[in-house]
Protein backbone atom coordinates (compact mmCIF):
# COMPACT_ATOMS: atom_id res chain seq x y z
CA UNK A 1 0.00 0.00 0.00
CA UNK A 2 1.50 3.28 -1.09
CA UNK A 3 1.79 6.20 1.30
CA UNK A 4 -0.85 8.15 -0.58
CA UNK A 5 -3.31 5.28 -0.44
CA UNK A 6 -2.55 4.80 3.21
CA UNK A 7 -3.14 8.47 3.89
CA UNK A 8 -6.42 8.45 1.99
CA UNK A 9 -7.63 5.45 3.94
CA UNK A 10 -6.71 7.06 7.25
CA UNK A 11 -8.59 10.21 6.33
CA UNK A 12 -11.63 8.17 5.34
CA UNK A 13 -11.61 6.30 8.65
CA UNK A 14 -11.20 9.51 10.64
CA UNK A 15 -14.03 11.13 8.68
CA UNK A 16 -16.27 8.17 9.39
CA UNK A 17 -15.39 8.27 13.09
CA UNK A 18 -16.14 11.97 13.33
CA UNK A 19 -19.38 11.26 11.49
CA UNK A 20 -20.44 8.92 14.28
CA UNK A 21 -19.08 5.57 13.11
CA UNK A 22 -17.37 4.21 16.22
CA UNK A 23 -16.15 1.14 14.31
CA UNK A 24 -13.91 3.41 12.26
CA UNK A 25 -11.87 4.12 15.38
CA UNK A 26 -11.54 0.39 16.01
CA UNK A 27 -10.19 -0.02 12.49
CA UNK A 28 -7.62 2.68 13.12
CA UNK A 29 -6.55 0.93 16.32
CA UNK A 30 -6.24 -2.42 14.65
CA UNK A 31 -4.24 -0.90 11.83
CA UNK A 32 -1.68 0.85 14.04
CA UNK A 33 -1.70 -1.06 17.33
CA UNK A 34 1.36 -3.18 16.51
CA UNK A 35 3.47 -0.20 15.49
CA UNK A 36 2.42 1.78 18.54
CA UNK A 37 2.96 -1.05 21.02
CA UNK A 38 6.39 -1.81 19.54
CA UNK A 39 7.45 1.79 19.54
CA UNK A 40 6.36 2.06 23.16
CA UNK A 41 8.22 -1.12 24.05
CA UNK A 42 11.46 0.10 22.48
CA UNK A 43 11.17 3.45 24.19
CA UNK A 44 10.04 2.13 27.57
CA UNK A 45 11.93 -1.14 27.73
CA UNK A 46 9.14 -2.89 29.64
CA UNK A 47 6.29 -4.73 28.04
CA UNK A 48 3.60 -3.94 30.60
CA UNK A 49 4.48 -0.28 30.63
CA UNK A 50 4.62 -0.30 26.85
CA UNK A 51 1.13 -1.78 26.50
CA UNK A 52 -0.20 0.68 29.05
CA UNK A 53 1.39 3.61 27.23
CA UNK A 54 0.03 2.36 23.93
CA UNK A 55 -3.48 2.19 25.35
CA UNK A 56 -3.12 5.65 26.80
CA UNK A 57 -1.98 6.85 23.39
CA UNK A 58 -5.10 5.51 21.68
CA UNK A 59 -7.36 6.96 24.40
CA UNK A 60 -5.74 10.35 23.74
CA UNK A 61 -6.24 9.88 20.02
CA UNK A 62 -9.92 8.99 20.61
CA UNK A 63 -10.45 12.21 22.58
CA UNK A 64 -8.54 14.53 20.30
CA UNK A 65 -9.29 13.12 16.89
CA UNK A 66 -11.83 15.88 16.33
CA UNK A 67 -8.95 18.37 16.46
CA UNK A 68 -6.91 16.56 13.82
CA UNK A 69 -6.60 18.97 10.88
CA UNK A 70 -5.16 16.57 8.26
CA UNK A 71 -2.13 18.84 7.89
CA UNK A 72 0.16 15.83 8.34
CA UNK A 73 -0.11 12.09 8.00
CA UNK A 74 -2.22 10.45 10.66
CA UNK A 75 0.69 8.08 11.37
CA UNK A 76 3.02 11.03 12.04
CA UNK A 77 0.46 12.56 14.40
CA UNK A 78 -0.09 9.18 16.08
CA UNK A 79 3.65 8.58 16.58
CA UNK A 80 4.06 12.05 17.96
CA UNK A 81 1.40 11.34 20.59
CA UNK A 82 3.03 7.98 21.29
CA UNK A 83 6.49 9.48 21.80
CA UNK A 84 5.12 12.24 24.04
CA UNK A 85 3.15 9.75 26.12
CA UNK A 86 6.24 7.61 26.62
CA UNK A 87 8.39 10.64 27.45
CA UNK A 88 5.88 11.79 30.04
CA UNK A 89 5.74 8.32 31.53
CA UNK A 90 9.54 8.03 31.66
CA UNK A 91 9.82 11.34 33.49
CA UNK A 92 6.91 10.72 35.85
CA UNK A 93 7.88 10.33 39.47
CA UNK A 94 5.81 7.20 39.89
CA UNK A 95 7.51 5.42 36.99
CA UNK A 96 11.00 6.49 38.05
CA UNK A 97 10.36 5.21 41.56
CA UNK A 98 9.11 1.90 40.13
CA UNK A 99 12.22 1.56 37.93
CA UNK A 100 14.49 2.31 40.84
CA UNK A 101 12.83 -0.35 42.98
CA UNK A 102 13.17 -3.13 40.43
CA UNK A 103 16.84 -2.34 39.84
CA UNK A 104 17.76 -2.41 43.52
CA UNK A 105 18.91 -6.02 43.33
CA UNK A 106 21.06 -5.54 40.22
CA UNK A 107 24.39 -3.85 39.84
CA UNK A 108 23.12 -1.72 37.00
CA UNK A 109 25.33 -3.27 34.35
CA UNK A 110 23.94 -4.71 31.19
CA UNK A 111 23.18 -8.40 31.40
CA UNK A 112 23.37 -8.59 35.16
CA UNK A 113 20.34 -6.74 36.46
CA UNK A 114 17.16 -8.43 37.46
CA UNK A 115 14.23 -7.81 35.19
CA UNK A 116 10.92 -8.32 36.91
CA UNK A 117 8.81 -7.06 34.05
CA UNK A 118 7.17 -9.58 31.83
CA UNK A 119 9.01 -9.99 28.57
CA UNK A 120 7.36 -9.31 25.26
CA UNK A 121 8.07 -12.77 23.98
CA UNK A 122 6.60 -14.49 27.01
CA UNK A 123 4.31 -12.04 28.84
CA UNK A 124 3.36 -14.52 31.53
CA UNK A 125 6.87 -15.17 32.82
CA UNK A 126 9.26 -13.30 35.06
CA UNK A 127 12.78 -13.32 33.77
CA UNK A 128 16.08 -13.03 35.52
CA UNK A 129 19.02 -12.36 33.24
CA UNK A 130 21.88 -14.80 33.31
CA UNK A 131 24.72 -13.07 35.07
CA UNK A 132 27.39 -15.57 34.09
CA UNK A 133 30.13 -14.48 31.72
CA UNK A 134 28.89 -16.50 28.78
CA UNK A 135 30.56 -15.93 25.39
CA UNK A 136 28.48 -13.93 22.95
CA UNK A 137 28.24 -16.87 20.59
CA UNK A 138 26.41 -18.84 23.24
CA UNK A 139 23.86 -16.22 23.92
CA UNK A 140 20.54 -17.10 22.61
CA UNK A 141 18.69 -14.88 20.26
CA UNK A 142 16.25 -13.89 22.97
CA UNK A 143 19.02 -12.82 25.28
CA UNK A 144 20.65 -10.75 22.55
CA UNK A 145 17.37 -8.97 22.04
CA UNK A 146 17.14 -8.29 25.76
CA UNK A 147 20.64 -6.89 25.79
CA UNK A 148 19.95 -4.73 22.78
CA UNK A 149 16.86 -3.38 24.48
CA UNK A 150 18.90 -2.62 27.61
CA UNK A 151 21.44 -0.84 25.46
CA UNK A 152 18.65 1.27 23.99
CA UNK A 153 17.32 1.94 27.49
CA UNK A 154 20.71 3.21 28.57
CA UNK A 155 20.68 5.95 25.93
CA UNK A 156 19.56 9.45 26.77
CA UNK A 157 15.85 9.88 26.04
CA UNK A 158 16.38 12.22 23.09
CA UNK A 159 18.82 9.86 21.37
CA UNK A 160 16.76 6.80 22.25
CA UNK A 161 13.64 8.17 20.59
CA UNK A 162 15.52 9.17 17.45
CA UNK A 163 17.35 5.86 17.00
CA UNK A 164 14.23 3.79 17.67
CA UNK A 165 12.19 5.74 15.14
CA UNK A 166 14.97 5.40 12.58
CA UNK A 167 16.49 1.95 13.03
CA UNK A 168 13.63 0.04 14.63
CA UNK A 169 10.58 1.66 13.07
CA UNK A 170 12.46 2.53 9.85
CA UNK A 171 10.98 6.01 9.53
CA UNK A 172 12.63 8.60 7.31
CA UNK A 173 14.66 11.45 8.75
CA UNK A 174 12.03 13.94 7.60
CA UNK A 175 9.23 12.04 9.29
CA UNK A 176 11.25 11.73 12.50
CA UNK A 177 11.82 15.49 12.36
CA UNK A 178 8.08 16.06 12.05
CA UNK A 179 7.26 13.64 14.85
CA UNK A 180 9.81 15.08 17.26
CA UNK A 181 9.42 18.66 16.09
CA UNK A 182 13.13 18.89 15.26
CA UNK A 183 15.13 20.10 12.30
CA UNK A 184 16.66 17.57 9.94
CA UNK A 185 20.17 18.43 11.14
CA UNK A 186 19.26 17.84 14.77
CA UNK A 187 17.68 14.49 13.90
CA UNK A 188 20.79 13.41 11.99
CA UNK A 189 23.15 14.36 14.80
CA UNK A 190 21.02 12.65 17.43
CA UNK A 191 20.85 9.43 15.41
CA UNK A 192 24.58 9.54 14.75
CA UNK A 193 25.39 10.05 18.44
CA UNK A 194 22.99 7.26 19.42
CA UNK A 195 24.56 4.82 16.98
CA UNK A 196 28.02 5.71 18.17
CA UNK A 197 27.02 5.15 21.78
CA UNK A 198 25.25 1.88 21.01
CA UNK A 199 28.31 0.69 19.09
CA UNK A 200 30.55 1.22 22.08
CA UNK A 201 28.03 -0.38 24.47
CA UNK A 202 27.48 -3.46 22.34
CA UNK A 203 31.12 -3.91 21.35
CA UNK A 204 32.01 -5.70 24.55
CA UNK A 205 28.87 -7.80 24.67
CA UNK A 206 28.04 -9.06 21.20
Amino acid sequence: MSKETERAEDERLIGNFLGGDSLAFDQLVLKYQKKVVNLCYRLMGEYDEAVDCAQETFVKVYRSLEHFRFQSNFSTWLFRITVNTCKNRLTSLKYRFHRRMIRLDGDGRLGRDVHLGRSAENPGSIEIANGSASPSAALEKKEIKELLQRAIDSLPKTQRTAIVLRDVESLSYEEIGRILGLSLGTVKSRIARAREQLKSILRGIL
Binding site: V29, K34, Q55, V59, L206
Partner: peptide, 29 residues
Protein backbone atom coordinates in the same frame (compact mmCIF):
# COMPACT_ATOMS: atom_id res chain seq x y z
CA UNK B 1 30.42 -1.39 13.26
CA UNK B 2 27.63 1.14 12.77
CA UNK B 3 25.95 -1.10 10.22
CA UNK B 4 26.08 -3.95 12.72
CA UNK B 5 24.35 -1.81 15.28
CA UNK B 6 21.67 -0.95 12.81
CA UNK B 7 21.22 -4.55 11.71
CA UNK B 8 20.97 -5.65 15.30
CA UNK B 9 18.32 -3.05 15.97
CA UNK B 10 16.41 -4.04 12.88
CA UNK B 11 16.52 -7.65 14.02
CA UNK B 12 14.91 -6.78 17.28
CA UNK B 13 11.70 -7.80 15.62
CA UNK B 14 8.28 -6.99 16.90
CA UNK B 15 6.52 -7.74 20.11
CA UNK B 16 3.00 -9.07 20.09
CA UNK B 17 -0.01 -7.01 20.94
CA UNK B 18 -2.24 -8.41 23.71
CA UNK B 19 -5.36 -10.06 22.33
CA UNK B 20 -7.69 -7.86 24.32
CA UNK B 21 -5.88 -4.67 23.44
CA UNK B 22 -8.86 -3.02 21.72
CA UNK B 23 -11.25 -4.05 24.50
CA UNK B 24 -8.89 -2.57 27.07
CA UNK B 25 -8.84 0.71 25.17
CA UNK B 26 -12.63 0.81 25.09
CA UNK B 27 -12.74 0.01 28.79
CA UNK B 28 -10.35 2.89 29.53
CA UNK B 29 -12.36 5.28 27.41
Amino acid sequence: ALREVRENLEQLGEVDVPANFLDMIHARI
